[in-house]
Amino acid sequence: MNIFRLMADLAHVLAIVILLHKIWKSRSCAGISGKSQILFALVYFMRYLDIMTSYVSFYNSTMKLLFLGTSGATLNLIYRKFKPSYDHNHDSFRIAYLLVPCALLSLFLNHEFSVLEILWTFSIYLESVAILPQLFMVAKTGEAESITSHYLFALGSYRALYVCNWVYRYIAESHFDLIAIIAGLVQTILYCDFFYLYITKVLQNRKLQLPA
């Protein structure tokens, strides 16, 4: 565990806390893509199946359970408790366009052709693009609430910090996982446009509004 990795995980937890707090406080999930949240839930479920087969540390298992639990809770808030506020007309990204290529890619580009390994690889590929329905929704409505922007910034920072962690681990431990690194880079690149808008607008107390 290095500082980048710790900060990454904290940013990830912060993102989840911001999202749940926003929905709970406003009693509304307006502006949040349920489809991105479905994809994230799928990502955690596929990746953390190994919680039963391999033990890394107490920290590791706790975080896995936290991500599984909170993603289930988020889906419950969006699709049950606050369903009337869910903006499904603007959440129109077709997730099959992400699921099918990720599934095919994980069958061909993996570390080992075994069920758990392919599911892990699928989750890594899917995570890298899972935010697209949310970004698509922001682009479609042309704006995002500040709190949604904070959520996206924390969530994007998490994988960017993992990239720093991988550089550190490559130098310090000669450890690297090419699949995770490339997918992590793709994931981070997808947020770049948003990061730019966040820094130039939201941090200056302006609403995130896209140019028409």
């Binding site: 190994d50 890394v56 896995k64 570390h111 080992e112 450890h175 996982d177 995770a180």
Partner: peptide, 10 residues
């Protein structure tokens, strides 16, 4: 890859 691929991350 075996040996390199340790899944100790989240």
């Amino acid at each position: 890859y075996p040996g390199i691929h340790v899944k100790d991350e989240l």
